[in-house]
Design a protein around this nucleic acid. Sequence first.
DNA 1: CTGATTTTGGCAAGCGGTTGCCAAACAATT
DNA 2: AATTGTTTGGCAACCGCTTGCCAAAATCAG
Lengths: 331, 331
Amino acid sequence: MNEKAATIYDIAKLAGVNPSTVSRALSTPGRINAATEAKVHAAAKELNYRANPFARALPTGKTRMIALMVSDITNPVFFKVVRGAEKVAAENGYTLVVAESIESSKVEAETLQRILPSVDGVIFGTTRLSDDEIHQANREKPVVLINRIVEGVADVVPDNEPGIAQAVAHLASLGHKHIGFLGGPTASWINADRWNLLMKHAVEAGMTVVSIGPNLPTVEGGRDAVDEVRASGVSAIITYNDLMGIGLLRAVSAAGIKVPEELSIVGFDNIFGSDFTSPPLTTIEMPLERIGGNAVRALLATFEAQDGTVPHGSEETTSLLVRGSTTKAKA
Amino acid sequence: MNEKAATIYDIAKLAGVNPSTVSRALSTPGRINAATEAKVHAAAKELNYRANPFARALPTGKTRMIALMVSDITNPVFFKVVRGAEKVAAENGYTLVVAESIESSKVEAETLQRILPSVDGVIFGTTRLSDDEIHQANREKPVVLINRIVEGVADVVPDNEPGIAQAVAHLASLGHKHIGFLGGPTASWINADRWNLLMKHAVEAGMTVVSIGPNLPTVEGGRDAVDEVRASGVSAIITYNDLMGIGLLRAVSAAGIKVPEELSIVGFDNIFGSDFTSPPLTTIEMPLERIGGNAVRALLATFEAQDGTVPHGSEETTSLLVRGSTTKAKA
DNA sequence: CTGATTTTGGCAAGCGGTTGCCAAACAATT
DNA sequence: AATTGTTTGGCAACCGCTTGCCAAAATCAG
């Protein structure tokens, strides 16, 4: 429980050199004589030395830790994002701190305050923070936003358009004329983006499209939309996310409406479990793991960039994944 | 991006006192005069002071960070564990670092080495590490194990027995005589525990029980068991976890076997999505969120305990959650 | 009102690294 | 061989906070 870790002073003594030499041998390869360097490394190995990250962080200000803030860690959308981020962070010798804001901007702000001093930068999953608060954070430490665009702040947002275009084309080819969009959080940038793109493509395809909700972006939110969906008379509906799609699918089936024969449903994200339903949910896939990884890469890039430029967007894209919840519109 | 944070020296200057007084005012309430303390607090507020956690960690050795190691962060079993742990950690002013070992003991050992110096203690979700490696880690920093018991190391393991007893009783009351257990990782302590308890209770209930697999503890692992399950002739099967249960349910249905009429299936854990299937999976519920929270509490307790005692077990228990995947055995 | 006791707050030494500066040692140049 | 240029590695200050020690100030007893 209490083996005291070796310090550079221990190594210095063992190797018969000055602590500063040890420091340089370990963190500035080439700065000192190769033979001395080898001797120091040998001593370090022998003592099973691992640098105290705090002692290192003090003078340099660099902690090699990155925070990833998510609104709800039990939301499966984040699983793969976290994995992708964790993987890239570890590859680069960084440690990822995952924090949850429990869908509350107050908690999020507090957590941010608690964590900010400990990390070199922050990635916001879906944040509830205002643009101002984000700018404020960005003034202290580099920030990367996932699925949101704020002027002057780095972001990673995949292109929603291909997936939506494909989904619309898919529904059009199945004869759907009047479709719906079950909306999620109105404050959400991505919700607006998806809705706007859907309108654009639906109109271009000669369909009419209506907005339903907005509801909570959860299974319950989907379930609660069944009356409104039914009342709207649409033959197909695209939901803000899979959670809502799954909730809707299950509630609608329970109400005796056949999916997909009487109602086609398209989700968004391809989360874990979206293929567990009967029928399995047709969905627009987001490359979540790559998004998480790219967010970390973007953050690391801002660490390098002394010119203050911030990376934007992403080469990532979305695409339709046709499963069982869509079929021909009833004649 | 670069606003330099205020230090206790800035506060000291503003409040007209010595830095050490500031330090005491902030971290040892009552140590100094109430008026002075108030003055310091006012100054701190004004400068928007937040202590540099690294500077604090250096002399004290306490980082107020806890690591939670999980084998696979995309495994839904961990979502709630992480949430519970994060919540309790935050409540106590600790920051949770979640690390993933990608189901590899090599990665796990490396990650552990990287993280250990930064944290006050470690919680192992399902670890692949050997008892020796765990003891080694426990020698450096306090360790808490979830779902595993190792001599001399603190653990949080809920009682599997009630849930299994209830599941057996449930199946017995439905007329099942010959049941199966689809096993997961053989090296897993909890897999053995579940199997042993199942044998005990099945025998007591006058049933026969066979072990099938072991397979991977994933949806694929469940899917791959369909032939063996079919060959075994069991009328009901309990799977090591829900992932396997879901995989089996879907594969078996796809093969034309009706669930639950021809085969009853009981999962384990009640993970996210286990109610998405048709029929929804009957499962033995684990109080995952509480387990995560209790693991953190256990760790915090060892921080306090100077006598080196380690907490064991948990008041948490398991219970059967009957949904749609179980019914009467065919006559 | 004086001596003893308790409060209060300053001083300074760390915690374990990093790094600018400099001198000694060595190599290269004429 | 003398001079200039490079390496190499030691010294010491510093990062921001904590804490043991001590003296001055305030409080309490007698």
